[in-house]
Amino acid sequence: MTDNHSYWAAIVRRCRNWNRNSRFSEKSVVIFLWLSAMVSILTTLGIVWVLFKESLPFFSEVSLFEYLMGTQWSPLFSPQKFGVLPLICGTFLIAAGAAMVAIPFGVGTAIFLSEYASNRTRDVIKPVMEVLSGIPTVVYGYFALTFITPLLQSVIADVEVFNALSGAIVVGIMTIPMVASLSDDAMRAVPDSLRYAAYALGSTKFETSFKIVFPAALSGVIASMVLAVSRAIGETMAVTLASGATPKLTLNPLESIQTMTAYIVQVSLGDTPQGTIEYQTIFVIGLTLFVITLCMNIVSNKVLDRYKLKYEV
């Protein structure tokens, strides 16, 4: 009897210990998971802190007005000029050109995928899109430099070796998959009842897709475009390879320009000494780039979220 009692007591004790241990390990696991989630907050704080801290000394020497309104950018040789407009201009030339490529092709692909394609065609196009979006940007840069630029040169007479157009086209190609897949998601989220209603009223397939589904998905489509433009602004390797290193306030896409990202690469590859104002410019440009893309991302994420709420009820 007593034997039996001690036997059960041992089991109870063991269970209690095991429970305590597992509770302890459970707690430590949750703490590890929480820490992992905090890494993302720390990253954001780190980015903001680094960019502001390293940019401040620059603005004690150059006024914000001079920086934002100046039309000449030449920090690496005298006379030093710190007007960011030529870099902004180059960046937006690329982004606008890329949008002109990515939006028609991307949205067209999305409409095809969500409204017209059979499952089998979808199974071909979707992986192709994924492969396109998975190709490294440096490969696109090579493609622009050795294929698109010579092609342009053979069609248009006065295209420079490095030109904005070639970079814009290739960045546009790069962002097609993004526009296509996000817009496709948006249009597939439109409930079929809307389509049936349109057909019942005698619409053709074109009228249903273009006048009913597309407007219903418009906010999602626009969000995808904004994201694509923001990605084009932040794109680095392709434009560095294809579009040159000449900061210039021009709207002529056939000339060599320089984007903000390409400037950062140029300084990093050179041997600019730390602590000089030339060196600080990369942080200032980085900050400018960060602020612009962050604003665009916040807007498009908001739109996408609100849009999801609309149909997921």
Binding site: S40, T43, T44, I47, V50, L51, L227, S230, R231, I233, G234, E235, T236, T261, I264, V265, S268, I282, F283, G286, L289, F290, T293, L294, M296, N297, I298, N301
Partner: peptide
Amino acid sequence: NLAGVPSIVYGI
């Protein structure tokens, strides 16, 4: 939002 930060900013 972090997913949309340009990669070059991570470099900095």
